[in-house]
């Protein structure tokens, strides 16, 4: 935290911070950046599957959001407004670069963390279940189409409503619901393929085989 950031600034709502930032307060905007840096990098990483690139895109989104603070309507959530800017930047990048659907084998061969081959998702193992579950979920999520990944992250990680996601992505709410449904089903299929859907079999020692 930069010196001089007032305690009240930390407690302020997003809308208040945006207003202060528009009036020239750099500290206020810094707090907004701190609040949304994680979600922004997370969303961008899920979309472009490259952490360094995701940080660049998130940084560009914060800079562009600052430029356009005057157009932010405080009656709506700052997060939705900001995610729309990030969405546009990321989609523009994907279109401009024509990023192909990189196979997960390639990602794994490139040593990319968290993107295991979904066909070989980590199977449940009692000893390290939580870590493996996270890895398996990440891998399953990475296997989805970019728009499915985006709706999953916005809905279940950033807790945006279907209508807010529709606004961010510029698509009808019904399409968002369809994407969420299909994304969940595809992830469940991948998890089941990896053995996560099998009923628990207890060994005499209490461990699963």
């Amino acid at each position: 935290m930069a010196p001089g950031v007032k305690f009240m600034t930390l407690l302020s709502s997003d809308a208040d911070l945006a207003k202060q930032a528009l009036a020239g307060s750099e500290d206020a905007y810094r707090v907004l950046v701190q609040r949304y840096a994680g979600p922004a990098v997370n969303l961008a990483t899920r979309m472009v599957r490259d952490r360094a690139l995701a940080e660049d895109l998130a940084q560009e989104a914060f800079a562009r959001a600052f430029d356009r603070l005057a157009s932010y309507n405080a009656d709506y959530k700052f997060s939705s407004w900001f995610f729309q800017i990030l969405h546009n930047i990321t989609v523009d990048h994907l279109r401009r670069k024509r990023v192909p659907s990189v196979s997960l084998d390639e990602l794994q061969e490139a040593g990319h963390p968290g993107f295991a081959d979904p066909v070989r998702l980590a199977a449940p193992d009692a000893a390290a279940e939580h870590g493996q579950l996270s890895a398996a979920l990440s891998a399953a999520l990475a296997h989805l189409r970019p728009e499915y990944r985006e709706v999953v992250v916005l809905r279940y990680r950033e807790e945006l409503s279907v209508e807010e996601i529709a606004g961010v992505m510029g698509i009808p709410a019904g399409t968002v619901k369809t994407y969420l449904f299909r994304a969940r089903k595809e992830m469940a299929d991948l998890m089941n393929t990896a053995g996560w859907g099998r009923p628990p079999v207890e060994t005499p020692s209490g461990n699963r085989p």
Partner: peptide
């Protein structure tokens, strides 16, 4: 699921870019 962590350096880089 675990949250993505960003470093303080990222925030500083971003603020520098904004400036």
């Amino acid at each position: 699921a675990p949250r993505v962590e960003v470093s303080a350096a990222f925030v500083e880089r971003t603020m520098s870019a904004v400036r």
